[in-house]
Amino acid sequence: MLKFNNVSAGYGGAEILRNVSLEVKEGEVVTIVGANGAGKTTSLRSLCGLIPLTSGSIEFQGQQINGLQPHEIVDRGITLVPEGRQLFPFITVRDNLLMGAYKKTARKDAEKRLEEVLELFPRVRERLGQYASQLSGGEQQMVAIGRGLMSQPKLLMFDEPSLGLSPLLVSQVFDIIRSIVQSGTTVLIVEQNIGHTLRLADRGYVLENGEVVVDGTGEQLLDDPHVKRAYLGL
């Protein structure tokens, strides 16, 4: 479904991703793990069209998508739940969710979709009229995920969904991601909380200094010496 072919990308002359190739198949859960600054977020941002590639190409459903504008990529069915939530602070939760359905094809079903999302997050329903900035961190993460679902994505990506959340909330967030996966959406996760992530993922890639150093199934990676070294220096 999604393919990175020897992708290099970076900011202002500095190459942060180097020759990265990876693949996500339809219905799969794939994760990218690695230390801070290894290029995880950069890989997602280049996929969303927020930063240009310096070489290589990205394909989605057999068509090249690098070079497209960010909104065109969203129209193809790729949605990112960004790091740190990035909600719209001074508009209501309801409007935040509806913004998720901004793309033309999602608009007409927006109200129906909103109901489905609220089924998934009953707590958010009580908050619909409040500004997003008035919510707790956990609630904001729910809204961010809900907003991502509103676009009826074919591929949903998460950038550090556990960031800044308490352990209990982290477990809840992963339960939700699990249920999204079960409903048939293809998922790509970038996480530093690798314990949770690798248990959930079908496959994973380990990034170090912008390069893929190891890949394999979730369980293989959990026992991999590279993973341990990247996180604990063992």
């Binding site: 969303c48 909104h71 960004p82 909600l87 719209f88 602070p89 508009i91 913004m99 901004y102 676009s151």
Partner: peptide
Amino acid sequence: KYTFLGRAIRATAQHRDAALLMGVDV
């Protein structure tokens, strides 16, 4: 408040990058 375009305008004003990610042509 009540149109998709209007919401997108407010959203863009408050968080440009997030609006891009929602598919808004900023």
